[in-house]
Simulated scan of single mutants.
Amino acid sequence: MGIGSGIALFVIGAILAFAVNIDLGGAVDLTTIGYILMGAGVVVFLISLVFTLRRRQTTATTRTAVDPASGEQVTRQTRDSNDPLV
């Protein structure tokens, strides 16, 4: 499930909670089901957002040292990323 699934659950829950006025005999309350779907949609959206933001973290490290043999300054750059396209 992704961000779109969370939004879809929230919208379906809002429709059931606020727009549908059908009496199903008291055994099923569509308003309560709508609120439950809205809550699940928010949870799925937030979890998906956290995983998306964690995946895009990048760490860049630059090290500068002097080579003892030649006396030259050597700079090494390292980029570590969870996303292979970065």
Rank of each mutant, 00 (worst) to 15 (best):
L46N: 05
G2D: 12
G6E: 02
M1K: 15
I22M: 10
T31C: 08
E72H: 09
S48R: 02
I36R: 08
A69K: 08
V66T: 15
G39T: 08
S81E: 02
A14I: 08
S70D: 10
V28M: 04
R54Y: 04
G41E: 01
I15G: 02
S48E: 03
M38K: 05
T61A: 11
F18Y: 11
G4H: 07
T62M: 11
V42M: 09
D29S: 09
V86M: 12
Y35V: 14
T75Y: 01
T78P: 02
G26A: 04
G41F: 00
T62H: 05
D23V: 06
G25S: 06
E72Q: 13
V50T: 04
V44C: 01
R55P: 03
T61H: 11
R63N: 13
I47R: 03
L30D: 06
G6W: 01
I47T: 11
G4S: 13
A60N: 07
N82L: 14
T62K: 09
L16T: 07
T62V: 15
F18N: 12
L46C: 11
G25Q: 02
D83C: 08
F45D: 01
Q73T: 15
G25I: 13
G4D: 12
E72L: 13
L24G: 03
I15F: 08
E72Y: 08
G13Y: 00
D83W: 04
L37C: 06
Y35M: 14
V74A: 07
V43T: 09
F51C: 05
T31G: 14
T61C: 07
I15V: 15
T75R: 13
G26H: 00
